[in-house]
């Protein structure tokens, strides 16, 4: 299958693939932004238990988490123009990239809202009560007290979501978007050096996700700098459960006991 393996092609393909890195990052960036906005809008009714909206956002989350992103891509690409045709909106000239970003945005939004919900609920209720006691309004308490704390708790999950999103963008080629995977397939069939292209492709993805992980780890350290670092103390006094308790709630490894087995 294809031409014989030649490692030097990996290096010639790297710069060619990097040329389309912009498109991939554009998709990631835009859908991340859309996802955060959607995530907040969807999480709020669930956090404040707004009757009808709560059910709507639950159905939304269930759908986007319950179906594969690939199916969602096709569904939006083919379905949205037909639905919008009913209300006299013509979408035939809309670029594919818009559909892709929209789908990824909504998909990430569902996961973001779960993340936001878990992080906000992980903030001690006493914090909000204390904020109210000092005379803050609901909005003030949320933006000044809850949000900064929730942000630090949410970062590890956020980091996973961003990396998952980056990897999911490799599916955009199915709709004909020329991002990295699409480019790799063209390069592969052009030169018949499939293995080398995909190795180069994998390397680029690996480096980017590694960088994202490290960057967000730094952000986490910065945001949680007011928390205690030492875990020894927490283990001996069960009342100081802040740190480990929050981690469990935010669906992270609690890292309790067992280390070293």
């Amino acid at each position: 299958m294809g031409a014989p393996f030649d490692i030097s092609y990996v290096f010639t393909f790297l710069p060619k693939l990097l040329g389309t890195l912009g498109t991939t990052l554009l998709i990631v960036g835009c859908s991340l932004l859309a996802g955060i906005i959607v995530g907040f809008l969807v999480a709020l009714p669930r956090l404040y238990k707004v009757p009808v909206l709560k059910t709507c956002s639950e159905i939304y989350i269930s759908f986007f988490r319950g179906t594969p992103i690939l199916i969602q891509l096709f569904l939006f690409y083919y379905g949205l123009p037909e639905i919008l045709k009913l209300i006299q909106v013509d979408m035939t000239r809309t670029p594919v990239l818009v559909f892709v970003i929209l789908t990824y945005g909504l998909h990430t939004g569902a996961y973001m809202s779960e993340m936001i919900r878990a992080a906000v609920q992980a903030v001690d209720k006493g914090q909000v009560e204390a904020a109210y006691a000092t005379g803050m309004t609901g909005v003030q308490a949320f933006t000044r007290i809850v949000l900064p704390q929730a942000l630090g708790i949410a970062i590890p999950v956020f980091s996973n979501l961003v990396i998952a999103l980056l990897k999911d963008t490799s599916l955009a080629f199915t709709l004909g978007v020329m991002e990295m995977t699409g480019k790799a397939q063209t390069l592969g069939s052009l030169t018949q050096h499939f293995i080398e292209t995909y190795i180069a492709l994998a390397l680029i993805y690996l480096v980017i996700s590694f960088a994202i992980e490290k960057l967000l780890l730094l952000a986490e350290r910065r945001l949680l700098r007011h928390e205690k670092r030492s875990t020894a103390e927490i283990r001996s006094f069960k009342i100081h459960k802040n740190w480990s308790y929050r981690r469990i709630i935010a669906e992270l490894g609690p890292g309790k006991g067992g280390a070293g087995l």
């Binding site: 990897k167 490799s170 599916l171 995977t181 690996l206």
Partner: peptide, 10 residues
């Protein structure tokens, strides 16, 4: 690290 850092498609 490699598998988790690259898409399933690759």
């Amino acid at each position: 690290t490699f598998i988790r850092g690259t898409p399933m498609l690759t």
